[in-house]
Design a protein around this nucleic acid. Structure first.
Lengths: 197, 197
DNA sequence: TTTGATTTTGAGCGATCGTTCAAGCTATTA
DNA sequence: TAATAGCTTGAACGATCGCTCAAAATCAAA
């Protein structure tokens, strides 16, 4: 009945996501994309509409991928909070060198688009909010399992977590000091547990 | 003997700095620069060499300007640490709306150039390091004035400060919640003082 | 095997990019 | 006042930008 689609949408989005993550929206050209996803401009535009459309889906792909990674770490760990900490160590220390960028793509987007592209800025903010909400659920889950005191403020802890995590991630962008990073991550989780109850 | 220079170098650099800060390096065109600094391309290139050269000087101008602002706040305050806190409140709360960008230009640069432009990345890292060094001096100064215990770890406090500050700044990028910001800044300084001695 | 709906292809559009440079202008000196 | 050194000007270069679309290719249904 028709010609069939040759590319794998998810694969293309992951590759585009990594490229945008590394080079930013303005710093990435459609020809860069063509080369890394092996598609011709006509197919790209037929599928994603525009550079902005492709970026939007790429950012969502990034956020979902991170969410899934976090789920994996939590599932494998003995407790939700231990899983969260292992996830942080993975992001800041283990995956740091082979990652497209040392900073969170969501914050990179938020910083690039604030005041420049309201639609993409708002979209990035929405995803950032969903991250914080997800972390609240992690703490809630730990609380339900009796791993945190009953007066533990999970919303406050999630907020502190997001702030400290992005601070640490920025600090170790381009800095290769795994043992220091490990120290500061330990310290961060200690403060998190102690100061929210 | 010759025609005279018509522009004010410092004024031009501050305007270029604000533009680069807002739009990023890749997102800013020389024609954008021409319009905001009111210079023709020939003059710009005769003065700064290239877009990269102008950016480099603009980033330095930003860092110096922030350093001077911090000095002002410290001079006006009763203690160095109070000055530091007022400076943070100025950056995150007061100046937030009329600032070119809600995130630190140094970290924006660091994030944009890591893996893309080694020269500019290294330059941004150098300036970031100098910020941390400056904050160490602030804490040292407070210590010398007897405002901190003798075993207060100023290097550690400066490191924690830089991490928390950038975390907070990113968190409040595009978010207008001054009272929450004030709360979290207070909390940050309390932790800073208590945990480094 | 033919038909036809659908996807892929890639040359190329107009706009904009960073940058150059010959020509014009300006203020000091002789 | 004429000469000249140094700055400003802006047209224009080749490259690249995001994007379009007619033509070619593909595969299932008839």
């Amino acid at each position: 009945m028709a010609n069939t689609i040759k590319f794998n949408r998810d694969e293309v989005l992951h590759k585009a996501s990594d490229l945008f993550w590394a080079k930013g929206f303005a710093g990435t050209s459609i020809r860069d994309i063509q080369d890394t996803v092996n598609m011709r401009p006509g197919s790209i535009y037929a599928t994603f509409g525009s550079k902005e459309g492709l970026y939007k889906e790429s950012l969502l792909t990034y956020a979902q991928g991170m969410g899934e990674k976090l789920d994996e770490y939590i599932e494998q760990a003995d407790s939700p909070i231990e899983g969260l900490q292992k996830f942080v160590e993975y992001i800041i220390i283990e995956s740091a060198e082979h990652n497209p960028s040392g900073v969170c793509m969501l914050y990179k987007a938020s910083g690039e688009f604030n005041g420049q592209n309201p639609a993409l800025f708002e979209f990035s903010q929405t995803l950032i909010d969903s991250v914080e909400n997800k972390v609240v659920q992690v703490f809630d889950s730990a609380k339900q399992q009796g791993l945190l005191s009953t007066d533990f403020d999970t919303a406050n802890a999630a907020q502190q977590f997001v702030i400290s995590f992005t601070g640490l991630r920025n600090y170790f962008n381009g800095r290769n000091q795994p043992e220091l990073a490990k120290q500061l991550i330990d310290k961060m989780f200690l403060s998190l547990i102690n100061e929210s109850s």
